[in-house]
Design a protein around this nucleic acid. Structure first.
Length: 323
DNA sequence: TGCCCATGGTAAT
DNA sequence: TTACCCTGGGCAG
């Protein structure tokens, strides 16, 4: 269940392990058979993400667009090289698991997950584990929509909201609909675009931050946490935000996204040191100001954190700190 | 074992 | 606003 940071990490993994190599593509499940066969045998030439969407370009000029949605996941297997820009400790990548690498659902190191991201496989005997690691590529597990394979690395895609073949124009059309993403559009123009779109409408800022055409990549966790960090009432209309408030939100997103891409975790309580930082990295419950903390005392003022539905998503906030 | 829920998004209503 | 897509983790029983 990735927000923007994990998709960028996955795109970097493809850049590191697939770009420049010939790729055999298939759809074991069958639902992307035509798209897979269109690119199979070609060299992958680009891999990058905008917001929660990832784009893989092949030498023919065709692209695959993938949106993981809430269930989607990539599993990497084989001799996977970690991207240099990604911290190798606690190397979990959102929903992405990598067989052969030490990973765990909460970013904790766990030998049990070697070779087996799926629960059913965690119970495999040691002998079975080692034999599975030896066979490459592994047997597809579950409904694999798309499998991408090089000599040494295999990536399986399951349960995505979107996986489709696009041409250059179609890719540009998708991107045109998205708001700026600091990891893709750096600089003042991206910030200006965000500020402009945020302050245009009377829609509550809590909804605007989740609107991918305003800013690409923010999801429900970052939304709640950013509003708390800014001390903003989620119901404040976008067009009532001051220029300073809007600029500060962008700067905070740049910072949080960068931490997320580097660590693979949505660490929103930055400024922690030593043991507190370690505890937060190890424990999801210690990582956030308000997210999933309804009924618990606010970490700053002690007021109970409130939970309400906003545009049919759960919104967590502190009514005292956020005004 | 079998529910419920989830860091999304779209299409139908 | 709701249904649906479709997967895995958590947890009650």
């Amino acid at each position: 269940m990735p927000e923007g940071h994990s998709v960028h990490r996955i795109a970097r993994q493809f850049a590191r392990n697939f770009v420049g190599r010939a790729v055999v593509a298939s759809s074991p499940q069958g639902r992307f058979a035509a798209g897979a066969s269109a690119v199979s045998g070609q060299t992958m030439v680009e891999s990058w993400a905008v917001g929660k969407q990832m784009f893989l370009k092949f030498e023919s000029g065709e692209w695959i667009r993938v949106h993981l949605g809430i269930y989607g996941a990539w599993d990497f297997a084989g001799s996977v090289e970690l991207d240099d820009t990604i911290a190798s400790a606690n190397g979990r990548m959102g929903q992405t698991n990598m067989r052969g690498t030490v990973l765990d659902a909460d970013g904790e190191n766990s030998l049990s997950s070697i070779g087996a991201p799926r629960k059913s496989r965690l119970r495999m005997a040691e002998s079975e584990k080692s034999s599975e690691l030896e066979s490459f590529p592994p047997e597809p597990v579950g409904q694999v929509r798309l499998r991408l394979l090089t000599d040494s690395v295999c990536a399986d895609l399951r349960g995505p909201t979107a996986c489709e073949l696009l041409n250059e124009d179609q890719v540009q059309a998708v991107i045109a609909k998205l708001g700026p993403d600091p990891q893709h559009d750096s600089g003042k123009r991206a910030q200006q675009k965000f500020v402009e779109r945020l302050r245009k409408k009377s829609t509550p800022v809590g909804i605007l931050l989740m609107d991918q055409s305003v800013v690409a990549g923010i999801g429900n966790v970052y939304r709640a946490e950013m509003l708390f960090r800014a001390g903003l009432d989620p119901y404040k209309p976008g067009n009532k935000l001051t220029l300073d408030e809007a600029n500060a939100l962008w700067k905070d997103w740049v910072k949080l996204l960068s931490i997320g891409v580097e660590t693979g975790q949505m660490m929103t309580m930055d400024g922690l040191r030593g043991k507190k930082w370690e505890a937060a990295m190890a424990n999801r419950a210690d990582r956030h100001w308000v997210y999933k903390r309804e009924g618990l005392p606010c970490r700053k003022c002690g007021t109970n954190i409130r939970l309400e539905m906003m545009a049919s998503r759960k919104l967590y906030w502190c009514p005292s700190c956020q005004t």
